[in-house]
């Protein structure tokens, strides 16, 4: 049984704690948050120990793994703390704010030899998984164009850092990283980018459409927004136009992404000279899938192959290039 601690009792830590309940060979031992109230409340709800200081928790609990659920700009710092104690890490996305911070973090990981994975949960998400499998098996053929979209109303879970240009940077970093990561997974290395974007009153680029050109000639557009109005449901979609097949996936949640009860999702597949297929992907919990995979890594002492370290760096390079592009209305080569 692997003992897991969570650092940061914010919104996303709930997804991990709930998932842990259903993961074999994994158990939640403790939570750490500098906000005592938040730590206590979380500890009570998920029946684990509360700490208000990360190093104390790591020293006393000696967990097998820690899940870092802190604001993005604190990731590198706490990955280093965990690495110093030899504690393996599952780190929330985006891995960091800058290429330098990400590179430094990966160097620390390398040197310490801990097992490290970024929680790019979309790589485990029903629908996205099937499309990646179709690409790998050759069913899609070459990709002409992919369009990956992620649109939401403004997220208000008590997070001022999220819409601070240096700490969270809004949709262009926090939402966009999901699709840039998935497109890296699906299409390969990014060659150059162009981003069309609008800032909202937070001064963050909270509606962006990024054009990606990949080294293999594939093309894609990723959209991310926090600008949808009123009761617009959290919506993510992926369309891929390939030489052998056209696929379309849409996931429409309730108000927020975690609201999977009222979800509306479908995967449509069109192949040359075949009848179209419509599938409703099985609604398993992708956080559970992700955690099971992480715990398997701990048991087999392996680094993640589904979310390779080099790709984490590639993705932050692409996101930072996108930010440079939108700031200057120009094409940026990676």
């Amino acid at each position: 049984m692997k003992r897991i601690a969570i650092i940061g009792a914010g919104m996303i830590s709930n997804s991990h704690a709930k998932a842990l309940k259903n993961v074999e060979n994994g158990t939640l031992c403790a939570i750490a948050d500098i906000n005592k109230e938040a730590a206590d409340k979380f500890a009570k709800e998920y029946q684990c120990k509360a700490y208000y200081e990360v190093e104390t928790m790591l020293q006393q609990e000696k967990p097998d793994g820690a899940i870092i659920c802190l604001p993005t700009f604190l990731h590198a710092k706490y990955v280093e703390v965990c690495a110093n104690y030899g504690v393996n890490v599952l780190c929330e996305k985006p891995v960091e704010m800058t290429v330098e911070a990400t590179q430094k973090m990966l160097d620390v990981v390398d040197k310490s030899g801990i097992i490290f994975m970024v929680a790019q949960v979309v790589r485990f998400w029903p629908g996205y998984v099937e499309i990646k499998e179709m690409a790998d098996s050759g069913e899609l053929g070459d990709i002409y164009m992919a369009y990956a979209s992620r649109c939401s109303t403004m997220q208000t879970w008590g997070n001022t850092w999220l819409n601070d240009p240096d700490k969270g940077a809004g949709a262009i970093q926090d939402m966009h990283v999901h699709d840039i990561d998935y497109l890296r997974h699906l299409c390969g290395e990014v060659d150059y980018v162009y981003c069309l974007g609008s800032k909202d009153d937070t001064k963050c680029w909270n509606h962006v459409m990024s054009s990606l050109s990949f080294k293999n000639g594939f093309k894609a557009v990723a959209e991310a927004s926090f600008t949808m109005r009123s009761t617009y449901p959290f919506t993510m979609s992926l369309n891929v136009s390939g030489t052998k097949a056209t696929v379309e996936f849409i996931y429409r949640a309730g108000y927020s992404i975690g609201d999977r009860d009222s979800v509306n999702t479908v995967l449509r597949i069109f192949k040359d000279n075949e009848e179209p297929i419509e599938i409703v992907p099985e609604q398993y919990d992708p956080y559970e899938k992700q955690l099971s995979y992480f715990i398997e890594l701990l048991e087999t002492n392996k680094q993640p192959e589904i979310v390779p370290h080099q790709q984490n760096l590639d993705v932050i390079k692409a996101v930072c290039a996108i930010r440079e592009s939108v700031d200057n209305n120009k094409i940026v080569h990676l």
């Binding site: 054009s211 093309k219 959209e223 075949e274």
Partner: peptide
Amino acid sequence: MANIIHKNGIHAVAEVSFNMQTG
């Protein structure tokens, strides 16, 4: 996927394809 900026600042992406598969 055509990325378009209008003189009044409105941003738009216009997408077209003739490569959708059968059906």
